[in-house]
Write a protein that binds this DNA or RNA. Structure first.
Lengths: 104, 104
DNA sequence: CGTGTAAGGAATTCTGACACG
DNA sequence: CGTGTAAGGAATTCTGACACG
């Protein structure tokens, strides 16, 4: 298992996430409801978060302190993902073109 | 928080460790008793493991399958740690000497 | 909208002990 | 020695709901 996996593997329960982020369990569940984080579920339904989720939750906490609403936070996150995807597509295209000796 | 921290931060509860390693909860507790792993404890006493602990437990599982006893596994681990420390000391000494323009 | 809380239930974890081998 | 299991208790987590603002 590579080191990157440690960041994204969902293994942390909500109580621990609460301690690590300073957010209440109620808040964390609500942010999931608002589609800001996406924990996995075990067979019996308990949520499991990754370290990456914790980073995201810390970002959310900062935004919330600035008074940003969850809906807006979600929009920002969607936009960032779009930008990242666009960039990926661009880079991929560049690589493919280079591979076939085409001009960009 | 750096990426290395994700590997050593103790945040995983014993049930999840059991799933990840294939070991029974009983076995994991016993290996702690035999000083092969050192989970942290929350205020109320539940064990928390790191990804590194999971790697160690996987190693232990392999050794046990080969019939190696916990006491021997412990001795091997202590020896490895000693070697690592010796190496570190050696490298550190080399750096210090280089810093002061001494000969090794 | 965002968060607290009491409610009832299900699943987890803990320790010390007995069992087996 | 290494591991399973039943025992009793404490703490966690879950959902749906009511409250407040």
């Amino acid at each position: 298992m590579g080191t990157q996996d440690y960041k994204t593997k969902k293994v942390i329960s909500i109580g621990t996430v609460s301690e690590l982020t300073g957010l209440s369990v109620r808040q964390i569940r609500y942010y999931e409801e608002r589609k800001l984080v996406f924990p996995e579920r075990t067979e019996n339904g308990t949520r499991k978060f990754s370290f990456q989720d914790i980073e995201i939750l810390n970002d959310i906490a900062n935004k919330r302190e600035e008074g940003v609403q969850t809906y807006e936070i979600r929009q920002e996150m969607l936009k960032e993902n779009k930008n990242r995807n666009d960039l990926h597509r661009k880079m991929l295209k560049g690589q493919i073109n280079a591979h076939f000796n085409l001009r960009n």
